[in-house]
Amino acid sequence: MESLSLHDLTAAYALDALEPDEAREYEEHLATCASCQEDLARLSGAAGALAFAVESPAPPPDLRQRILDAAVGERENVVPLRTRWTLAAKVAVAAAACLAVGFGVWAATLSRSLDRERSAREQADQALAIISDPTATRTALSGGTGSLIVTQGGAAALIVARLDRAPSGKTYEAWVIENGKPQRAGTFAGGGEISVLRLERPVPKGAQVAVTIERKPGADVPSGRMVLRAKPV
């Protein structure tokens, strides 16, 4: 039933006519639904054709150079993808760029830690989309080294460097706190050089994000110690 109603969001998604939370839900579904992937490929071709139906006055001549300058400026901060990188490695590079600290052996570490989790690939894919969204805002975490990245649609990812592994029987749990009310947003184990968590709920304007240590498998209301916090402006 749920996936049926998600199937018929394909046309609206191809036209960018979904609310941000609907679009996010659809994208999660899309990652695992071959028939939607096929439909979307067909429908977005038709939607893309609509771009050609409007008049095309020449853009200002300097726009081309501005785009190229901005692109080259970005490249200097990110290692070029020389070969076909694994997804996890791309997440690591993007995350490293966000943290503005060195990278190197992270890719391997992250890859191993991601492989352990069942839905790790989708998690990583979604996290990468958020991290690499050029219009997303980045907020430094207090309590540790890392960033909270929030897209304009509210989709969010946490990147934390060198966070000790959660004690046995416990887990890190993220919370989105809006109007003083915390709502659970996913758990992660920590450990390793870098942890990436794609938050399970959007971060609306004015909301904060916090991470506490909770008993496994995670709690519905936070009761443990708060270790990290970020308040996007």
Partner: peptide
């Protein structure tokens, strides 16, 4: 994808105008 900016310039030359027309509309 290999960070070749002349290739980005080529894509802009091919689709920049349509993109601008769409965005302006």
């Amino acid at each position: 994808a290999r960070s070749d900016e002349t290739a980005l310039a080529e894509l802009y030359d091919r689709f920049g105008r349509v993109a601008y027309g769409l965005a302006l509309r």
